[in-house]
Design a binder for these strands. Structure first.
Lengths: 205, 205
DNA sequence: CGGTCTCTTGACGGAGTTCAAAGCTAGTGG
DNA sequence: CCACTAGCTTTGAACTCCGTCAAGAGACCG
């Protein structure tokens, strides 16, 4: 147990050390600021209507962030695997109700921090302020690309892009959630894959 | 001329002072870091394929940020009016080619800063590091809402949301650019507005 | 083994696109 | 100040992609 959590903290420290340099004292401060939180499959870090109290670093497992619209349709915003972040920045910072759900796709483990602890950590390690600015910028860039992809290409092009960028996604995530990520219904994805397969066999014959 | 530029700098200082407190020395440092750049209607701060060398604060006029896809269709990502920022964060920071165009909708004026000057300014005013982290977070939040709106509702709902959030947009921006922002073609927006108008007259009769 | 969740398949419908043409508006130059 | 042009908006008809509804087949879990 002790050694497991030690490995999780090492992942986080490694992550930060790729972006900045840390003293031993700073590493200790980071370790004592982030708490381990285990979340079982299908359970939530937080749900729509709640405040996102924790920002989490995925040390084991995987998550999806989604939004349920007024017609009860789910729309997947992100998948998060190991070494990625989960949370709702707006809700976390403004302490207002979130419009998103963060759900574990399998039994998973997060390193979480709440807002007071994060502010305290920023004060003691000012370099982290920049690290998180860069993380947020990266996040914004990814979302911008996603948005442009969504408005400028059809579902099949978006599917191909996803498979290329994340070839193992189909082994990790059920198909109806991939459909949701692509912005189409499960029926449409099923039909689309059939079409692609048909074209493939025609080519190779 | 002198008093015009003085007013522009005051807009920027006022903007920063809403987010943090500044000493007189810091205000002077800000003023000497940002340069005035005038851009005529239909001209560009930068275009697709170029590096975004400047981050700009709109002191007068308005801009649109758009992306041209492989079918030569334009997709408007943002409009920017006074007291908003323009630029491509990824291109600016990583000094890589941008996938976006920032074009003036009318004769306009920006306060611009390049990367070395911004880094120098951050060193002399560390509080700005946080200000820009918060700006980026806000930006991300806005884009997330936009994305969810785009995938979960139809063009008419998106149009109504835009008009409500920005009632004067139709006076400021040509209709085909509004269509592009909504993710539809000008023909579709024209038809949609006709439909809406027809329903309105039926109601009031 | 039964129930629930997931994936597939079919027929139909609708929102938005495509292509083409005509009317309108605003900026430009004589 | 008018005339001309280029760009913007409107309209129509056919089409496409994806959604909707419904039903059945397969997979997973207690």
């Amino acid at each position: 147990m002790k050694s497991d959590s030690e490995a999780s903290y090492l992942k986080l420290i490694d992550y930060f050390e790729k972006k900045t340099t840390l003293t031993e004292g700073e590493k200790t401060a980071i370790k004592s600021s982030y708490k381990i939180k285990k979340i079982k499959k299908k359970e939530y870090l937080f749900q729509q209507g709640e405040i996102c109290k924790y920002e989490g670093f995925v040390s084991q497992g995987s998550f999806r962030t989604y939004y349920t619209d007024d017609k009860d349709l789910e729309h997947v915003l992100y998948f998060a695997f190991e070494n990625w972040w989960v949370g709702d920045i707006a809700s976390f910072n403004e302490e207002e109700a979130s419009g998103q759900n963060v759900q574990a796709l399998q039994d998973s483990e997060l390193l979480v921090i709440d807002k007071p602890a994060k502010e305290k950590l920023f004060k003691s390690i000012p370099a982290l302020e920049k690290v998180f600015r860069v993380i947020t910028q990266k996040h914004l860039t990814v979302l911008q690309k996603r948005f442009l992809m969504t408005v400028s290409s059809n579902a099949e092009a978006r599917f191909n892009e996803l498979i290329q960028r994340c070839p193992t996604i189909e082994q990790m995530v059920p198909q109806h959630q991939i459909a949701s990520y692509l912005g189409i219904l499960p029926e449409s994805l099923s039909r689309m894959k059939k079409q692609i397969a048909k074209r493939e066999t025609h080519k190779s014959n």
